[in-house]
């Protein structure tokens, strides 16, 4: 029998663990200046916690709260694995893609860390990789490598 996809199959723990890795290299960790609402990684962690608490995969209005003004230095080496994980967990909703989807929120926040602007998600992982390549070939290579590692 064909394996059916379940709507609760996203795995926030994997994303959380990768986000924690970014936090561990942050100078603001465990200081009074560590503010999740104004930090792209902190925002992503809050999104995942909220979604887990509420059992929901869409958070209406959350895309408008992404702290795009967070200009701390981030490194593509640590961000690429998070982007790769969002690709793995993306349900490829295509026409029904929602920017307030939990996976999309984390992906968009991570894009802001290393790209000048977030990418309009084309609705599928394959097209996403092609779009990233057109913006940043180095990041695209890292993303492809990260996807291969756990494929």
């Amino acid at each position: 029998m064909e394996q059916l996809r379940k709507t609760d199959e996203i795995n926030p723990a994997v994303l959380q663990a990768l986000l924690e890795k970014i936090c561990r290299s942050c100078d603001l960790l465990d200081t009074t200046d560590c503010k999740e609402s104004s930090c792209l990684v902190g925002f992503s962690k809050k999104v995942l916690n909220f979604a887990a608490q509420k059992g929901m995969l869409d958070i209406p209005g959350a895309a408008g709260l992404i702290p795009a003004g967070d200009f701390k230095p981030y490194y593509p080496e640590t961000v690429a694995p998070v982007l790769a994980e969002t690709c793995r967990q993306c349900k490829e909703c295509r026409d029904n893609h929602s920017p307030d989807c939990v996976v999309a929120l984390v992906r968009t926040a991570m894009e802001h860390t290393v790209l000048p602007e977030a990418i309009t998600y084309p609705g599928s992982v394959f097209m996403y990789l092609a779009t990233i390549k057109s913006h940043d070939a180095t990041l695209a290579t890292m993303l492809a490598e990260a996807l291969k590692k756990r494929a």
């Binding site: 503010k35 999740e36 609402s37 925002f43 809050k46 999104v47 916690n49 909220f50 958070i59 209406p60 209005g61 959350a62 408008g64 709260l65």
Partner: peptide, 15 residues
Amino acid sequence: ETDNNEFKKFLLSGQ
């Protein structure tokens, strides 16, 4: 106004 939503309160909590 969806800005004033539950998630916004959650995001700003604990700061």
